[in-house]
Simulated scan of single mutants.
Amino acid sequence: MELFQNVVKLRGFLGRNADVPPSDGITEDAYTILHLATMSGTWDIATNDWKPRIDWHRIICPGPWFCGFTRGMRRGEYLEIEGELRDFEQDRTVVVVGKRYPAKHLSYTVHATRIQQLERPLLVVDTGDDG
């Protein structure tokens, strides 16, 4: 049994092409950024309606191996990604009534440890017609 565990597993579609550094810019510190969309939702009992929600996840793929593997990944590809959830703080400026104030903004990213390209699923749409 592990005392601590930080594992995130996501399955979804790329929202844009992989942001990969140029071939001559790949070093040990290089990384690729992926933007993965996942969908979930809730059923509204009062209206008998499904309320979908799309979440966007920023995936950091560290190292030259991931840079090579993700090169050529395009928007719409279906992926499964495993990684660690990490937070980071960014300095931002907030404007209130014309005055600028410094502010901290907390964001979360997933640092990939495994990426698998999956076969694109066939989407079945229920038209509601019986028969």
Rank of each mutant, 00 (worst) to 15 (best):
M1Q: 13
M1G: 14
E2L: 10
L3G: 12
F4S: 13
F4H: 10
Q5E: 10
N6T: 10
N6V: 11
V7Q: 13
V7M: 07
V7Y: 04
V8F: 05
K9W: 00
K9H: 09
L10K: 01
L10A: 01
L10F: 00
L10C: 02
L10Y: 01
G12S: 04
F13V: 00
L14Y: 00
L14S: 01
L14K: 00
R16N: 07
R16L: 06
A18I: 02
A18H: 06
V20A: 10
P21E: 10
P21H: 10
P22D: 15
G25K: 15
I26T: 09
T27L: 07
T27E: 07
E28A: 15
D29C: 03
D29S: 11
D29M: 06
T32F: 09
I33W: 03
L34Y: 05
L34R: 05
H35P: 00
H35S: 12
L36Q: 03
A37S: 11
A37Y: 01
T38H: 13
M39V: 12
M39C: 04
G41N: 12
W43Q: 09
W43M: 14
D44Y: 06
D44C: 06
I45F: 12
A46S: 13
A46K: 13
K51M: 13
P52G: 13
R53S: 14
R53H: 14
I54K: 13
D55A: 04
W56H: 08
W56P: 08
H57A: 02
R58M: 14
I59F: 03
I59E: 01
I59T: 01
I60M: 07
P62Q: 05
G63L: 10
P64Y: 03
W65T: 12
F66T: 03
G68F: 03
G68K: 14
G72M: 10
R74Y: 11
R74A: 15
G76P: 11
G76N: 14
G76F: 14
G76S: 14
G76D: 14
E77S: 10
E77D: 12
L79Q: 02
L79S: 02
L79Y: 01
E80Y: 02
E80A: 09
I81Q: 01
E82W: 10
E84D: 08
E84V: 04
E84F: 03
L85A: 15
R86H: 15
F88R: 11
Q90C: 02
Q90M: 06
D91C: 01
D91A: 08
T93D: 15
V95Y: 10
V95R: 10
V97A: 13
G98H: 09
G98A: 07
Y101G: 07
P102A: 04
P102T: 04
P102I: 03
A103Y: 11
K104S: 09
L106E: 03
L106R: 15
Y108W: 06
Y108F: 06
T109A: 07
T109H: 07
V110L: 04
A112N: 01
T113I: 09
R114N: 11
R114M: 06
I115M: 12
I115R: 02
Q116G: 04
Q116A: 14
Q116L: 13
Q116K: 15
Q116N: 13
Q117H: 11
E119Q: 08
E119D: 08
P121Q: 04
V125K: 09
V125W: 04
V125I: 13
V125Q: 09
D126T: 04
D126K: 09
T127K: 12
D130Y: 08
G131H: 05
